[in-house]
Design a protein around this nucleic acid. Structure first.
Lengths: 124, 124
DNA sequence: GTAAACCGTTGGGTATACAACATGGTCAAG
DNA sequence: CTTGACCATGTTGTATACCCAACGGTTTAC
């Protein structure tokens, strides 16, 4: 796959993709004889995952380490498990932070909504 | 409260607090006769909330709009409700993104863990 | 009454995550 | 065989979110 196709499939700009390539966030990209690069299909999924993680406030650096976990077999098992669990607990922390935010917004909703409106919202 | 006390209570640097002040993220800070500023107690909570939101990938700009919601009575009701609901749905999106990430990491854990280890993790 | 600790303002610097060129090579259609 | 769409590389620029240092004024402790 050439970069243009990847751009279409991911909605990312080619600069972004190139940037991710530069910093080693996406890998396994081979340069063909003509100088064009061959982006494997796999990257479509990888880039989606990167987008998710980025939206959640993970830095590209963090995502890089996160992704390297998902490319199996690069670390010892116990080591790998540790890192994964650390990430999971980070995620749990973020989850609870989200819940707190949501709580506060819901309180605000309850204060400002008419009873009818509130009911409508809470049942959808 | 002077800035030093706020620094201690929030663990933020004074530059960060000043920065938030500059961009209007925190307000209601009055300058006293001696030139020193009086930071209201309220800000301790506000800054904690800002920290939460920041960790979740909200920009300071977004947080500013988020906070303005929580300072009641500045918008018409239906208008306010709309904005709050938009924020809540953003939060829900982030939640589901987190769940996806967690899923993938858990799969990885399952693949790389010994059965015993996996069991231990899943029961804690 | 002076030194240490604190305060405000300003201006410059840094890291992250790109975007926007400029330049030059490659390919596919007609 | 040229033109337009596509590609690669490199440099510079931008926005965000700060950090740090310098300068000078203020307050507190001795």
């Amino acid at each position: 796959m050439l970069i243009g196709e990847l751009v279409k499939k991911t909605q990312l700009s080619k600069e972004t993709i190139r940037h991710y390539e530069d910093i080693g966030l996406i890998r396994g990209i081979k340069t063909q004889a003509n100088g064009y690069k061959n982006y494997p299909e796999r990257l479509v999924e990888d880039l989606k995952l990167i987008g998710l993680a980025k939206d959640l406030g993970f830095t590209l650096k963090e995502i890089k380490s996160l992704l390297s976990l998902l490319q199996k077999g690069q670390l010892g098992r116990s080591n790998l498990n540790q890192v994964i669990q650390k990430k999971i607990s980070e995620i749990d922390q973020k989850m609870s932070a989200l819940n707190q935010l949501k709580e506060r917004l819901n309180q605000e909703l309850a204060r400002t909504c008419s009873p009818q409106e509130t009911l409508k919202i809470m049942t959808t």
